[in-house]
Design a protein around this nucleic acid. Structure first.
Lengths: 128, 128, 128, 128
DNA sequence: GTGGTCTAGACCACG
DNA sequence: GTGGTCTAGACCACC
């Protein structure tokens, strides 16, 4: 599990770390119970500040994606995170509108949607 | 077309204005050629700074969603905006992961996707 | 609303700020809609770092006690925060045990409990 | 008397051990003169570091809850521990404020308080 | 001016 | 060694 951070885009680094770990869990690249690097280790590995990594971890923790064992490590937590259908729908409305306005048909749209879901299953070889 | 702005969430106001206008176009609530309020008018109406509205308009213009008529008005442009399948896929990956991690099945996910696309067609009576 | 921070005790500063604001709201010293000082202002006023105040504010925000208006200020939010009877009971068990082991009677215990609740109503003149 | 430790919460492990023993004494599950396991034994049993258990025992000893017999064992001490009404009140203020802000009435609050005190008397069948 | 983000470096509680 | 906390100073997005 190697993180790919882009320091030039506007997405905050802690957000990028967070997102990639969430994607990693969803795709199975990170399995439940697996140990994550320590904040310091990941900070050195990625070349960012400890507090930045810490912020990402705190974020993930508050969502229930990871949990920190007081005896030392941080691991992927198994518990389902909380997201409602309504919240997801809200996140999808703008992409759907963009797709539509760019001339995408309903089928093309659904095709991408299927890919996005499946994509988190086995083949993540072509995407970050 | 009334904008509903929330000043407490993390989404920037100019982004909210932009998004709602895009959604308005996609849903047909705003039709091609329709005149938008002036920057100043919309600023007063929504209670935000003129610069904020201006930024949203600039954004929409750069995407080709609206165009400024030399004689003064700003109208909805008809041209197709530019969005690639890859870009849409990128925007969908995180929502897809969230949905999956919250225990949503493939079918439930697609159901929401269909809704998101259809939702921008006729019945916007329950949404902003 | 003046904060009294103690830099010698083990309770983190951001926690002290958080707690005193919560107590302030409960006691009515801070009313709904009232404007809080900016992070910078409070940082200067109390002599701590901006990020420390920021952390306390983030904490309060996540609990729904305050909300930040993107146009500038941070205000006391009216919405009820979420705490269950079970959670409160959990927090009370240890104090109750301590009270009991120090020889306090049931009546004395309840007397203190009543005081603790009432105390957040009008007369905060003798407590921090 | 089995300890239930949670390594993922923010409460330090030594604190959890301490608290549960205090609760055990208050509830009568641990009676005066009863022998506690040795530091080493409890460390193995719970899977934590010896130093951690030791710290909890030192803490309990300093409060007068337990005492070490010269011949080797550690037993529950009978003497009253020291806690003032003011100290208890201080510990109750934040929980009281939380309860209040979550919409709890004075009666509901007192109900929980009574439960917390009574709970440490006979029926600990449902609590740790 | 406001909050959000990041850095480099430090100290401490915990285990 | 691990994470939690704090600092001083900085840059940036937003309004």
């Amino acid at each position: 599990m190697l993180l790919q951070l882009d320091f030039t885009i506007e997405t905050p680094i802690y957000r990028q770390i967070h997102d990639q770990i969430v994607l990693g869990i969803a795709s199975g690249k990170l399995s439940v119970g697996e140990k994550l690097p320590t904040v310091r280790a990941l900070a050195i590995e990625t070349g960012v500040n400890v507090m930045t990594v810490n912020k990402a971890y705190q974020f993930l923790k508050s969502e229930g994606h990871i949990s920190t064992d007081r005896r030392g490590g941080t691991v992927i937590a198994g518990g389902k995170s909380v997201t409602t259908a309504d919240k997801v729908l809200g996140e999808l409305r703008l992409p759907a509108a963009s797709a539509k306005l760019s001339g995408m048909s309903s089928d093309e749209w659904l095709d991408i949607c299927i890919k996005a879901y499946k994509c988190e299953e086995e083949n993540n070889n072509d995407a970050t």
